[in-house]
């Protein structure tokens, strides 16, 4: 097949500066790593870890209630203040909401994710994926705004239940202690609905991913062994999808825990952890107490993650 002949190339010539740099990097893989990782690592250590460290340090600083000034005297007073009953209420209120939102998201997400995995084929599969992803990434503040429009007096939701003749039911709901309020926009129910809406996609995708990994032959095996649909669902699908639900709840729980904008705009007065932090540093200027307050969600989330890891949620991410 061949008729050409190849001349012989001479041995390596003397090296230029650039090539010498290449040689130096080749001989020291650690230097290569350093060059690549140096910039991002420096950025994260200085900007991010540095900030977190100053935040933690601030939580031990002293805030003078009279002069409204922060001094660098170290104290544990801020943490003691956390344990006051009023602050405890804030934590409890936030936790209750985060749990309710996670539960509701799971209930809403499961049938949708199940349908996506089991029945959506071809273009429908893509459609469902985009239909979940798009609202998830769509602007947070715009979505919250849309809900104030939806829930407003004379808005779409009022219009709908008036026309369905459910006005009485809604009035009754508004009188209930844990759900009610003066109007939908200022009710616990309204706030709960908005929270659930905003974080729902973060539940759907992990559940869908977990269900996607259930092999089809497992379902056949189950029905071969005489299980009916409900039994297969209860004993095969549900346990296998559960880590996905836990993984999703990490998002819904932690995102609700840290939010301060929704509680500020929708629902009755009464602070959440997020709004507490925001108010403390903002209008009051008590950065040390605000800093101490941020430790609360971090601890709760850390506990939650530890529990979630035990339930196998990280394999579903």
């Amino acid at each position: 097949m061949m008729t050409a002949s190849l001349p012989v190339t001479p041995a390596a010539p003397a090296l230029g500066l650039w090539q010498r740099l290449g040689v130096a990097l080749y001989r020291r893989p650690g230097l290569q790593l350093g060059l690549l990782l140096g910039l991002p690592l420096l950025w994260f250590l200085v900007v991010y870890i540095g900030s977190l460290a100053t935040l933690l340090a601030q939580s031990f600083f002293t805030f003078d209630d009279f002069t409204m000034e922060v001094s660098r005297e170290l104290t544990l007073a801020n943490y003691r203040q956390l344990l006051q009953p009023a602050n405890f209420d804030v934590v409890l209120r936030t936790l209750l909401m985060a749990s309710a939102v996670s539960l509701a998201s799971a209930v809403l997400a499961f049938p949708l994710a199940y349908y996506m995995v089991r029945y959506a084929r071809g273009w429908k599969k893509g459609f469902f994926y985009v239909a979940v992803m798009l609202p998830m990434w769509a602007s947070y503040i715009v979505k919250v705004y849309a809900w104030t429009v939806l829930l407003a007096k004379d808005g779409m939701v009022y219009w709908a239940y008036q026309h369905l003749g459910l006005g009485g039911v809604m009035d009754w709901l508004m009188t209930l202690p844990l759900l009610g309020g003066n109007s939908l926009t200022t009710s616990h129910l309204g706030r709960f609905a908005v929270f659930t809406y905003i974080w729902l996609p973060f539940m759907i995708l992990p559940v869908q991913a977990a269900l996607e990994r259930v092999p089809a032959n497992l379902l056949q095996a189950s029905s071969d062994l005489g299980a009916n649909g409900a039994q297969t669902f209860r004993h095969v699908i549900l346990p296998l999808a559960f880590p996905g639900v836990v993984a999703g709840s990490i998002f819904t729980f932690s995102l609700t825990l840290g939010d301060y904008i929704i509680p500020q705009i929708i629902g009755p007065s009464g602070l959440f952890i997020g709004s507490m932090v925001y108010t403390m540093q903002g209008s009051i200027g008590n950065m040390p107490l605000a800093a101490a307050f941020t430790v609360v969600p971090v601890v709760i989330i850390a506990l939650y993650l530890t529990g979630a890891r035990k339930l196998g949620a990280f394999d579903a991410l």
Partner: peptide, 15 residues
């Protein structure tokens, strides 16, 4: 490689 020490020489400088 042809008498020249290659250890420490990156691939792009080897014949």
């Amino acid at each position: 490689i042809f008498g020249q020490e290659a250890a420490g020489l990156p691939p792009n400088l080897r014949a």
